[in-house]
Write a protein that binds this DNA or RNA. Structure first.
Lengths: 345, 345
DNA sequence: GTCGTCGGTTGCAACGTTGTAACCTCGCTC
DNA sequence: GAGCGAGGTTACAACGTTGCAACCGACGAC
């Protein structure tokens, strides 16, 4: 391999052309696999490319083609396992299609999410995958620059925007039914959002309620525990509070795995046996739940399909760009209940 | 705000200029805060910018300036909590400096790590942060394109490459001494790499050994457990095997938190009390260890400083680019032993 | 033998931006 | 009142690439 001499400017098509004794356009033709190139020329050019260590200048190519092969991914933060695993999948799928991913963190803050939509720093991306937490229906502002956008989450935006979401209600119902199927009757719900009507928490609550009522029971409000942020400390703290207040339950459905794992800790800390005394189910199938003791029963929300579909939709929008003929689409991949030790077995 | 009419091409400097009634260069001058612009002109131009909804074309700017404001980050995979948290920090620090991060996954595979160094898809980045697992001293191939490179990990490359690493030996020694300080005498080491002489495993082993010997004890080879991949399943499996084989110990130092958490599960599964019977220490301070029960004592390797220093060094190399005057640097931020319940609080 | 065709190659223009240097128009100085 | 300098604006070139159209030579067809 050619070792680049220090401080020398990167070689361009012209440098290659000079070495190969052809015009720089011919070099371009070779590299772009144009059909009309003689085999001998092609070989000579490729040798020259090798010799001078040429690598195409992507900035120039982007400028010319109006495309960068880069997509943006804006998530709350990678230190939340769910989003880290999602980003992992997205990057993997994108790489298969020769796309590369620029990751931005919004902290789940409305302001930063709006900024991700507008941010000129991202304008070198061909499109954006946005996983919003803070945005609401009132923020009906798709990218003003008209950049292709796919939202990972509940339908928010009108206009030419796709959404890839989860079967929140059905999955929550399945999780709750699993607990009821074990004979549990006092199923606590961890992570409700009181004021919310259309968000993720509301949908999962609806699934929970549907399961309870289908079993001929009633929702006991004492068992519906509101928690604003779905992280471990909140889960642990809420569970501890509820236990110390003497609320009785024989099962817990946590709105996500972080809440569940936090709750698990507080249960164990107080000597409550899981699953014997209290069965526990989470949501997201985060890797951490697989090697706790007991391991965590949870909902696998179709993360791989979510990533795959999201990239596919975005790519279609990018390809369609100028024409703008695609209808907005909403996709909710299938989920799977993963039964582990925290619900017996 | 201006709403972009569908399908219209993005406005350029020329469009703004036409509206403002000046030359397009004057618009450029205004946007780049050139001193010589009359206040009235500036206002007129800014109004026009607003009116047509102009946003600079970064591809063109990059081509002109030879810089993109994008840095690459290549890690094994984001689904490993340590790298997710590292990426989180890197993106945060970079954002403060108006840099944006393109994340690539190598799977820890030598081949893919080499590819990350060469990959033309990354050539629109100004530089690369690489966290290699598979590369060895034999792969002494810094970026042939001469792109600035900072390695996150043990010094590997010669030439103009910086390294940001950890105080593996000192931290491992501190962790082991902490266990010895609790009166434990049979401290198991989980995760040794037998054949290795210069890697992370070897350095941590050296720290372990130093602590043991400084306490007047001898390293018992039966307590040094080799594990190739440092993940939870391997940790759980190895711990189970050792326990079932009847090896006795009163403490475990795991080479990283994943191993520790896997081991914790196997200990609990077999009714071994932690920390009463066996005290446990990990390495990395991954978030998952904070809400297990018992919570995990671990080494916080200075992750924030690692991210900050890495970005700083890379930025310096980028700024220095053409001149190439910077000596290679190696930085190992300070660590911190975080004592939690798994070593008795 | 001339023309048309096709394979192979080339030149030109353009993508949108910024740096350099030139330009013009003042107002000031002598 | 002519010359000069500074403030403000403009023209031009260049960054490295690709699409388009033109070009050139050779070969086959009539």
């Amino acid at each position: 391999m050619a070792i680049e001499p220090e401080g020398r400017a990167a070689p361009t098509l012209r440098d290659v052309a000079q070495v190969a004794g052809v015009s720089f356009k011919t070099v371009s033709n070779v590299l772009n696999d144009h059909p009309q190139v003689r085999e001998a020329t092609r070989a000579r050019v490729l040798a020259a490319v090798e010799q001078v260590g040429y690598r195409p200048n992507l900035a120039a190519r982007n400028l010319r083609l109006g495309r960068s092969g880069v997509i943006g991914l804006a998530v709350p933060e990678l230190s939340q396992a769910f989003f880290a695993q999602l980003a992992d999948e997205v990057i993997r799928v994108a790489a298969e299609q020769d796309l590369v991913v620029l990751v931005e963190q919004t902290g789940g803050l409305r302001e930063r999410e709006l900024e991700a939509l507008r941010n000129p720093r991202l304008s070198l991306t061909d499109g954006l995958l946005l996983a919003p937490l803070g945005l609401t229906h009132e923020d009906v502002t798709p990218d003003p620059a008209g950049r292709p956008l796919v939202v990972l989450g509940e339908p928010l935006f009108p206009g030419p925007v796709d959404h890839v979401t989860m079967q929140h209600e059905a999955a929550a119902r399945a999780a709750t039914e699993h607990l009821l199927g074990l004979g549990r009757r006092r199923v606590m719900l961890l992570g409700a959002h009181a004021a919310e009507e259309t968000g993720v928490a509301a949908l999962r609550y609806a699934g929970y309620r549907a399961a309870i009522e289908a079993a001929g029971l009633e929702v006991d409000d004492a068992l519906v525990v509101p928690i604003e942020t779905w992280d471990r400390s909140s889960g642990a703290e809420a569970m501890a509070r509820v236990l110390d207040a003497g609320v009785r339950m024989d099962a817990v459905f946590a709105m996500n795995d972080d809440l569940a794992l936090g709750a698990l800790r507080s249960l164990q800390e107080r000597g409550v046996a899981v699953p014997a005394d209290v069965a526990l189910v989470g949501f997201d199938d985060v890797a951490d739940g697989r090697y706790t003791f007991p391991s965590l029963t949870t909902v696998e929300p179709g993360r791989h399909d979510i990533a795959r579909e999201a990239v596919r939709l975005l790519r279609e929008r990018i390809d369609d760009r100028a024409r703008g003929e695609l209808e907005p689409r909403v996709i909710a991949p299938g989920f799977r209940l993963v039964v582990r030790e925290s619900t017996g077995s």
